[in-house]
Amino acid sequence: MMRILGAAWLIGLLLMGPVAHACRVCRPRVQAQIHTPDYTANLLILLLPIAVVLLVGAGLYFAPALKPRPSLPARS
Protein backbone atom coordinates (compact mmCIF):
# COMPACT_ATOMS: atom_id res chain seq x y z
CA MET A 1 0.00 0.00 0.00
CA MET A 2 2.84 2.35 0.92
CA ARG A 3 4.56 1.54 -2.41
CA ILE A 4 1.43 2.40 -4.39
CA LEU A 5 1.04 5.67 -2.48
CA GLY A 6 4.74 6.50 -3.06
CA ALA A 7 4.45 5.77 -6.78
CA ALA A 8 1.25 7.85 -7.04
CA TRP A 9 2.95 10.73 -5.23
CA LEU A 10 5.95 10.57 -7.62
CA ILE A 11 3.71 10.45 -10.72
CA GLY A 12 1.69 13.38 -9.40
CA LEU A 13 4.88 15.35 -8.79
CA LEU A 14 6.04 14.66 -12.36
CA LEU A 15 2.67 15.66 -13.86
CA MET A 16 2.60 18.94 -11.94
CA GLY A 17 6.14 19.92 -13.05
CA PRO A 18 6.83 22.55 -15.72
CA VAL A 19 6.53 21.27 -19.29
CA ALA A 20 9.55 21.58 -21.59
CA HIS A 21 8.84 22.77 -25.12
CA ALA A 22 11.03 22.49 -28.20
CA CYS A 23 12.38 25.87 -29.28
CA ARG A 24 10.22 26.34 -32.38
CA VAL A 25 11.06 30.05 -32.54
CA CYS A 26 14.85 29.69 -32.50
CA ARG A 27 15.15 26.50 -34.61
CA PRO A 28 15.24 28.30 -38.02
CA ARG A 29 17.95 30.64 -36.69
CA VAL A 30 19.94 27.69 -35.35
CA GLN A 31 19.68 25.84 -38.69
CA ALA A 32 20.72 29.02 -40.53
CA GLN A 33 23.79 29.48 -38.31
CA ILE A 34 24.87 25.86 -38.74
CA HIS A 35 24.50 25.74 -42.53
CA THR A 36 26.53 28.80 -43.41
CA PRO A 37 29.00 28.98 -46.35
CA ASP A 38 31.69 28.03 -43.76
CA TYR A 39 30.01 24.66 -43.07
CA THR A 40 32.49 22.51 -45.02
CA ALA A 41 35.50 24.40 -43.65
CA ASN A 42 34.20 24.01 -40.08
CA LEU A 43 33.59 20.30 -40.68
CA LEU A 44 37.05 19.68 -42.12
CA ILE A 45 38.79 21.67 -39.38
CA LEU A 46 36.81 19.87 -36.69
CA LEU A 47 37.62 16.44 -38.13
CA LEU A 48 41.33 17.20 -38.72
CA PRO A 49 42.67 15.94 -35.34
CA ILE A 50 40.56 12.78 -35.62
CA ALA A 51 41.83 12.18 -39.17
CA VAL A 52 45.44 12.55 -37.95
CA VAL A 53 44.88 9.99 -35.16
CA LEU A 54 43.12 7.64 -37.60
CA LEU A 55 46.05 7.84 -40.03
CA VAL A 56 48.54 7.03 -37.24
CA GLY A 57 46.41 4.07 -36.10
CA ALA A 58 45.89 2.70 -39.62
CA GLY A 59 49.59 3.13 -40.42
CA LEU A 60 50.52 1.20 -37.27
CA TYR A 61 47.97 -1.55 -38.00
CA PHE A 62 49.19 -2.11 -41.53
CA ALA A 63 52.89 -1.51 -40.71
CA PRO A 64 53.88 -5.21 -40.91
CA ALA A 65 52.29 -5.49 -44.38
CA LEU A 66 53.86 -2.24 -45.58
CA LYS A 67 57.41 -3.16 -44.51
CA PRO A 68 59.56 -4.13 -47.51
CA ARG A 69 60.15 -7.87 -47.43
CA PRO A 70 63.61 -9.30 -48.12
CA SER A 71 63.77 -10.17 -51.80
CA LEU A 72 63.70 -13.84 -52.68
CA PRO A 73 66.80 -15.29 -54.38
CA ALA A 74 66.43 -15.25 -58.12
CA ARG A 75 65.63 -18.59 -59.74
CA SER A 76 68.25 -19.89 -62.11
Binding site: I50, V53, L54, G57, A58, L60, Y61, A63, P64
Partner: peptide, 15 residues
Protein backbone atom coordinates in the same frame (compact mmCIF):
# COMPACT_ATOMS: atom_id res chain seq x y z
CA UNK B 1 55.37 -11.93 -34.22
CA UNK B 2 53.65 -8.60 -34.88
CA UNK B 3 52.56 -6.45 -31.93
CA UNK B 4 51.52 -3.42 -33.94
CA UNK B 5 47.96 -4.59 -34.83
CA UNK B 6 47.09 -4.87 -31.11
CA UNK B 7 48.78 -1.54 -30.32
CA UNK B 8 46.91 0.10 -33.23
CA UNK B 9 43.56 -1.29 -32.02
CA UNK B 10 44.27 0.02 -28.50
CA UNK B 11 45.44 3.35 -29.90
CA UNK B 12 42.26 3.99 -31.89
CA UNK B 13 39.97 2.80 -29.08
CA UNK B 14 41.93 4.88 -26.55
CA UNK B 15 41.74 7.96 -28.77
Amino acid sequence: LHRTPLIAAGLLMGA
